[in-house]
Simulated assay, not measured.
Amino acid sequence: MSAAALIQEQELQLRAQSYYPENVAHNAKQVEHVRSTALSVAGGVAGVLGMTNWLGFGFYVVSVLLTNVIVLAINANGTPSKYFITPSPPLKPLTAQTSAPTPAKNSNVKSQISTKALTIDPRSGSFSTNDVASFLINGLTENAFSFILWWTFWFGIVHVYD
């Protein structure tokens, strides 16, 4: 394979990448910030309302689910595959089709024509039911300590003399 063919192949592969890594990292950082803030506020609400034991932890689980639904519905505009990378297979696979070599009409000149048609899906995958379910419980363990911190803090502040 010649150098020009290698460069052309690399350019096609670069065009096939549908996500800009810096944007993906920024989106993940912003979603984590939204989750962290929302669940800290939910911990404060649970403390002010005087929730204890399993009622408080149930409120935490509902808060995580509600926060993630809001992120999917509002922030991702209902199309999460546009903003998040998923492990799902692509809708259309990335394929390079090569035509068979064809001899020229003049037998003295042997040339081969090779054309590549690249089918590129604009996204690397789509959100399946399993992806949505895993996204909805995402952040459940990461934000538990901040929820508990704010929960106990506000419970202690508001209900100290009960």
Rank of each mutant, 00 (worst) to 15 (best):
I85C: 11
A117L: 15
A25Q: 08
E11M: 15
S134C: 07
S36H: 14
V34E: 10
A96N: 09
V61D: 07
N108H: 08
A104F: 08
I7S: 12
T102V: 13
S146P: 02
L118H: 07
S99E: 14
A42H: 02
V64M: 02
S81L: 02
P93L: 07
S107A: 12
G139K: 04
T152V: 08
P89F: 06
A16G: 07
A46F: 00
I120G: 00
G125Y: 03
T67I: 01
S99G: 13
F127Q: 01
Y19M: 08
L55C: 08
D121K: 02
V48F: 03
A76S: 05
F145H: 14
Y161S: 15
A38G: 08
S111K: 11
G156N: 10
T152A: 09
S36D: 06
Y19C: 01
T141D: 10
S111V: 10
P103M: 11
R35E: 03
V132Y: 10
V69C: 07
I148P: 01
G139P: 02
E11G: 07
A96R: 14
I113N: 15
W154L: 15
N68I: 01
Q30D: 06
S126Q: 10
G56T: 04
Q30S: 07
V48W: 00
H159N: 03
G56V: 06
R15M: 08
K105L: 14
G56R: 15
S63E: 04
S2C: 10
S124H: 05
L118S: 03
A5R: 15
G58C: 06
A4E: 15
T141G: 12
Y83G: 03
G125L: 00
A25C: 06
N130K: 11
L118V: 12
Q8S: 15
L72S: 01
T141N: 08
T141Y: 10
Q112S: 14
T98E: 14
P93R: 09
L39I: 05
A117G: 08
